[in-house]
Amino acid sequence: MEAIEWIKFLAGALLLLLGTTIFIFEMIGVFRFKYVLNRMHAAAMGDTLGIGACILGLIIMNGMNLTSLKLFVVIIFLWFSSPVSSHLIARLEVTTDEEQDKHYRRLILSQVEESCERNNCEEKNRKQESREQSNCEEKCRVQAAEKEEVK
């Protein structure tokens, strides 16, 4: 019986310390990144994983109990709600950003196609012509071969 208790303690302690290490990484990330959305990403990842590891460790230490079930409900609730929170914060940041041209690059599809056409116009045309010619030659050969066969 003693061995099981010690094993429970060691496994739970390991997961708990892993969780606090993840929290430390999260804090380092939140202080070192240079842009808001990067910091929010570090916070969201660290929160979700850190809380999962910590509370799993506590559940293992406690055994199968009603209290463990309630702590598991905490994990499930947080894993549902934390991504939604970060989505809303990212949305807030994107709408209220004053220096948008400095931070993001906006790609609109029609403009991309136009610029592509302008840049690669000559090459594309040449390639297309050569492809068409080669296709045409093949078709002509095939047709000639068929005509010969028919004849």
């Binding site: 969780g19 929290f23 999260e26 939140v30 808001v36 959305l37 910091r39 929010m40 916070a43 660290g46 929160d47 850190g50 809380i51 910590c54 509370i55 506590l58 230490m61 406690n62 209290t67 702590l71 905490v74 947080l78 929170s85 914060i89 990212a90 807030l92 940041e93």
Partner: peptide, 23 residues
Amino acid sequence: ADRIVAVNMLGTMVIVMIAVLTL
């Protein structure tokens, strides 16, 4: 957004602290 993220993180750490206290 920084401040809202910080408040969220604070709440998460408090949740872990209360869970440790239950045990």
